[in-house]
Design a protein around this nucleic acid. Sequence first.
DNA 1: CGTCTATTTGAATGTACTCAAAAGCGGTGG
DNA 2: CCACCGCTTTTGAGTACATTCAAATAGACG
Lengths: 194, 194
Amino acid sequence: MNKQSLLDYIAKDINLNDKEESMLFSKAKLRRYLKGQFLVQQGDTCKYISFVNSGCLKTFHVDDEGREHITRFAIENWWTADLGSFIEQIPSDCNVQCIENTEVVQFSSESLTELYLQIPKLERLFRIIFQKAFAASEKRVIRNFSLNVKENYLLFRKQYPKIEQRVPQYMIASYLGITKEFLSKIRKQLIHEQ
Amino acid sequence: MNKQSLLDYIAKDINLNDKEESMLFSKAKLRRYLKGQFLVQQGDTCKYISFVNSGCLKTFHVDDEGREHITRFAIENWWTADLGSFIEQIPSDCNVQCIENTEVVQFSSESLTELYLQIPKLERLFRIIFQKAFAASEKRVIRNFSLNVKENYLLFRKQYPKIEQRVPQYMIASYLGITKEFLSKIRKQLIHEQ
DNA sequence: CGTCTATTTGAATGTACTCAAAAGCGGTGG
DNA sequence: CCACCGCTTTTGAGTACATTCAAATAGACG
């Protein structure tokens, strides 16, 4: 199993000794998915929280009109899950699907519960992870309301240049909450502005 | 100091003994604010994370055009802060202002850092708090994209009936990301639909 | 080269916004 | 008790921004 990415990631916030590392990985599952495969499907319970070793995923919701709304992307060294479904173990209203072939390290809800007891330092790690994730999510709400579409798109490109290059434009449009046609028109405007 | 609300709140997730309780409150500040007063102002650093004993607050951002965008409300037994500013101790892009006379229990960033070391169980408490907050924030992003304005308003009324009754309509419009005039028109439609 | 998918274009439409003005609704003081 | 004030909500006309739908174009890959 490729443990190094996750270990490096963890080491930024807490120190684990060898015993703790092996306890952690004894509960972990390495899993490879092909492009197009689903980690979570709307209606199912989100069984795992997944740390991305390699690849790219999208989280999206399909609304009553059948429209797809992308809420998040995830690439190397990001976590992904439908957290609401995962923590409460209730049916998810989201899909998590691979945009590329993807390798993840997964923890089930029960595993994580046990790990928190065995390695209390993990409470700190995830406290910090969720704290940052929440702060980022709040910022996104602000941006969505206070920036116009063009500014929002430019900010996305600036903040996530890696994602922009790996993901088709229509998915970026979905993430920004606009149609693919409109994003195309905005891009045209931006070219003419320069 | 009114400690009971916070103690009850904490007891849902972790158990503190008497010594830990007194350690916790030795770092806490009780503070009363009048309607209209600010806990945080855009440009200042958010010094405290605040647990609301009583009252009602709004968090909002003022954009470049001078428009106010409310991102959150907070009432009894909620926490409020600009978390991004608080955890990094950098200038905030939000304001937190009292809509009613309000009493809060506040913790500074340094206090909380010390408390995490003195009472490691608090890592767990805040892990759970931020985990839930993040999950809720994600849900809000989904709703904003997949529901139309009318549905979003109805959901807000259903989810936060207490807030709806305590807060003027124009603030709810701001929270929903629409103008007060448009919300007024939606309400008119809703009356005629019944 | 042909097929499949992604992006662009254009016309018509709709949703939400702006601005200005009127109406409603407490509270306060004469 | 009612008149006035400040604040909130409503109304209406005109407008801007983003969408839909259909069709054309561009790119990727076998």
